[in-house]
Computed example of a mutant assay.
Amino acid sequence: MTLVTAGMVVLDCAEPEKLAEFYKELLGAEDVDAHVNRVEIRARDGFRLALRRDVNATAPSWPRPENSLQAHLEFVVDDLDAVERLIVGLGGRPVETGDASGPTGERGYADPAGHSFTVRRGTSTAPKQG
């Protein structure tokens, strides 16, 4: 018997409504459910993301070592360059540059509130470094 029937990633941020617009556009989400201090997004593929209001939220400093990564999102994409243009156009920013050539290229970004996430091609088999 399964006790846990669903789950989602929850990010704390000062302005969940504003950050929800970033992820809604990035994910092409159609279903957005807003509450007083929380916004939930459901992408077409079923991925669920919640943004919870925390007026004292501070962004992690990743990839700098003085603050832990805490958590990050990872999205699989077909075209790294096109997705980068979309992310930057929506207010996100690159946080790490690396060689994205080859079948498992990966790039790191921060959303407008500073939460880190990566986009990658293919299936990564490498362990986390650091």
Results as ranks from 00 to 15, higher is better:
Arg38Ala: 09
Glu40Asn: 12
His35Tyr: 11
Asn67Val: 11
Glu30Asp: 14
Val76His: 11
His35Glu: 11
Asp78Trp: 05
Pro16Ile: 10
Asn56Ser: 14
Glu74Asp: 15
Ala82Arg: 13
Leu51Ser: 02
Arg107Glu: 01
Ala59Trp: 02
Gly89Ile: 06
Leu19Arg: 02
Asp33Glu: 08
Glu15Pro: 00
Thr118Leu: 09
Phe75Ala: 00
Ala126Ile: 09
Pro16Gly: 02
Asp12Tyr: 07
Gln70Phe: 10
Ala71Val: 06
Ala113Trp: 03
Ala71Arg: 01
Leu69Trp: 04
Gly92Met: 00
Asn37Phe: 09
Ser116Asp: 10
Gly102Gln: 01
Glu21Asp: 12
Ser61Gly: 09
Phe117Trp: 08
Leu26His: 05
Phe22Tyr: 08
Arg93His: 06
Gly130Ala: 08
Phe117Val: 08
Leu86Lys: 15
Leu11Asn: 01
Arg53Gln: 14
Arg64Asn: 13
Arg85Ile: 04
Leu11Ser: 02
Arg120Pro: 12
Ala113Arg: 02
Asp99Thr: 10
Asp78Val: 08
Leu51Cys: 03
Lys24Asn: 06
Tyr109Phe: 12
Glu106Trp: 13
Phe75Leu: 15
Glu96Ala: 10
Gly114Ser: 07
Glu40His: 09
Glu96Arg: 15
Ala20Glu: 00
Asp31Trp: 10
Arg44Met: 13
Leu86Trp: 04
Thr104Pro: 11
Leu86Glu: 15
Lys128Cys: 07
Asp54Gly: 01
Ser116Asn: 12
Leu90Ile: 13
Thr97Pro: 03
Lys18Trp: 01
Gly98Met: 13
Val119Tyr: 06
Pro60Phe: 03
Arg44Thr: 12
Gly122Phe: 09
Asp45His: 02
Ala50Cys: 00
His35Trp: 12
Phe75Ser: 03
Val39Asp: 02
Asp79Trp: 03
Leu19His: 00
Asn56Cys: 03
Leu69His: 06
Glu84Arg: 14
Pro63Gly: 04
Arg52Met: 12
Leu86Tyr: 09
Thr118Arg: 12
Arg53Ser: 08
Arg121Phe: 02
Ala71Asn: 06
Phe22Lys: 09
Ala126Asn: 10
Pro94Lys: 15
Pro103Ile: 02
Pro60His: 00
Arg44Gln: 15
Glu74Ile: 03
Glu25Ser: 15
Ala20His: 00
Pro60Gln: 00
Ser116His: 11
Ala29Asp: 08
Ala43Cys: 05
Glu74Asn: 14
Arg44Gly: 13
Arg120Thr: 13
Ala29Pro: 09
Ala71Met: 13
Ala110Asn: 12
Phe22Gln: 05
Leu19Phe: 07
Ala14Leu: 12
Pro112Tyr: 02
Val119Arg: 06
Ser124Trp: 11
Arg120Trp: 08
Leu51Lys: 01
Asn56Phe: 11
Arg44Tyr: 07
Val39Gly: 00
Ser68Val: 09
Val77Glu: 05
Gly114Gln: 06
Val39Phe: 03
Arg120Gly: 15
Val55Ile: 15
